[in-house]
Design a protein around this nucleic acid. Structure first.
Length: 320
DNA sequence: CAACTCGATAACGAAGCCCA
DNA sequence: TGGGCTTCGTTATCGAGTTG
């Protein structure tokens, strides 16, 4: 399984136009099929995740819900046939016609949002709006490909470890909304709650694409003091990581920032000794070595990727 | 001697197939 | 059903051979 292949950045295969959910009866067949499906709960949880994180790749769905890629492929195929999700292929414009090199990418369709809302007994407008928003931004989606990959790779790396796991993954959409509600216009790309045997480690993710001007980088660094939550910065290159570290130094950020770069992630994985403390020049540490807080009542068996976690946590990766 | 062409091979993801 | 193995279509890579 390969992660963090961020260079391909064009999506093909999606419908050209957004298709509204249609008259109320149109989605009925799909809804009926889903309701009678033996894997209904897992499929609904997959739809919930698509709604929360705007899109997911086959590999990410596998990390969260399956133990083999085949299962993920089959279930996603079924959702596609029912018209609940859209499938896109990633292509690299520099090579041309290159697809299948990257995992396919799935978005919630209007019908999928409609069915999901009905299963949750909520009004469909909000979920459809979110799905439409994701669809309208489909051409820019891949700029954030690393964020979802990061969290999914964390699930993948931890799901078989009995003494730790990722419990919460709050996507960039929800994170940004929460910050906006607090009147802040600079928001990280996600938030996570990582459980160990004795602690819970809270962290924000700052997935840097190396495209932001240094002024904005400095603003981000200065804002990276989130009430004691760690901020994990991932840079595309070692040089850029140094740039981030300089910005952190200059901004005199009071928060606890840690930095790494893609090469470290690919080589050692998200649980490796890759996180270098922001200020100073300490050696790189593991995520599980970062200071945490006392454990809540949340159980390790309910962490993301554990068998049947979605049955006990109907709110997806963000709820409960 | 550098630049290119060609072919074999490796790698990858999706899907087909078989089996418990 | 899900899991695992196989097949298929595709691209990247590399080295040998060829050409200017």
């Amino acid at each position: 399984m390969s992660w963090f292949q961020a260079d391909g950045y064009v999506l093909t295969g999606l419908p050209a136009e957004w298709e509204p959910p249609g008259p109320a009866g149109a989605g009925r067949a799909a809804a009926e099929g889903l309701l009678q499906d033996r894997e209904r709960d897992r499929k609904l949880a997959m739809l919930t995740c698509l709604s929360q994180h705007r899109w997911m790749t086959t590999t990410e769905v596998e990390a969260l819900f399956f133990t083999s890629s085949r299962g993920a492929q089959r279930q996603l195929r079924r959702l596609e046939e029912w018209g609940l999700v859209h499938r896109g292929h990633r292509t690299d414009p520099h090579v041309g016609g290159n697809w299948r090199k990257y995992p396919d990418l799935f978005l919630l369709s209007a019908r999928g949002a409609w069915v999901l809302a009905h299963s949750q007994r909520t009004e469909p407008q909000e979920l459809i709006r979110r799905a439409f928003y994701a669809f309208s931004n489909r051409l820019h989606i891949l700029h954030g490909v690393g964020v979802n990959d990061f969290f999914a790779s964390l699930v993948r790396a931890s799901r078989e470890l009995p003494d730790q796991g990722l419990y919460h993954w709050v996507g960039d959409d929800s994170t940004r909304r929460k910050f906006q509600e607090q009147g802040e216009d600079i928001a990280p790309d996600g938030w996570g709650r990582y459980l160990t045997e004795s602690e819970e480690i809270y962290f924000y993710l700052e997935w840097d694409r190396g495209t932001e001007p240094s002024a904005r980088l400095r603003a981000k660094a200065a804002a990276a003091d989130h009430a004691g939550h760690h901020v994990l910065w991932v840079a595309p290159s070692p040089a850029r990581e140094q740039g981030i570290r300089s910005a952190l130094q200059a901004s005199n950020s009071q928060g606890t920032s840690w930095t790494t770069h893609i090469g470290q992630l690919q080589e050692h994985g998200p649980l490796g000794e890759i996180w270098q403390p922001g200020p100073g020049d300490g050696h790189r540490q593991r995520l599980t070595e970062l200071p945490g807080r006392p454990r809540s009542e949340r159980q390790l068996e309910d962490c993301l990727g554990r068998p049947g976690w979605w049955l006990r946590r109907p709110g997806g990766t963000e709820g409960m």
